[in-house]
Amino acid sequence: MILGFLPLNIAAVLLFLFAVMGLMYWASRKVRPEKKSREKEKIYACGENISPGRLEVPYESFYRILIRMFGFESFKRWHSGDINDYLTWIITGMVMLIMVLVLTW
């Protein structure tokens, strides 16, 4: 049935597209071979001079905005490292699971 072959279909389509892309890339290299030069290796910034240090994306602040927007920091504060909290979770989770199972057996 079609469901069983869905991952295979997607994989086959993607491999075929990669093969087509590789073929086009190879053909274009044949038409005009690559010439290396020093200028190509440098960073281009529309004529300005940019030091490599300014190019690094500040990952910390990117993730921090995301974390504060959704309120993810509170999750981190709950894992306080205090073992009594962790044990309370275990006992409470077990009691709730047992209650759900007993009441609906």
């Binding site: 981190k76 504060r77 894992h79 306080s80 490292g81 205090d82 073992i83 009594n84």
Partner: peptide, 10 residues
């Protein structure tokens, strides 16, 4: 005291 042994948190 287990409240003071909290190096690994978060």
């Amino acid at each position: 005291d287990s409240k003071k042994i909290r190096g690994l948190n978060g």
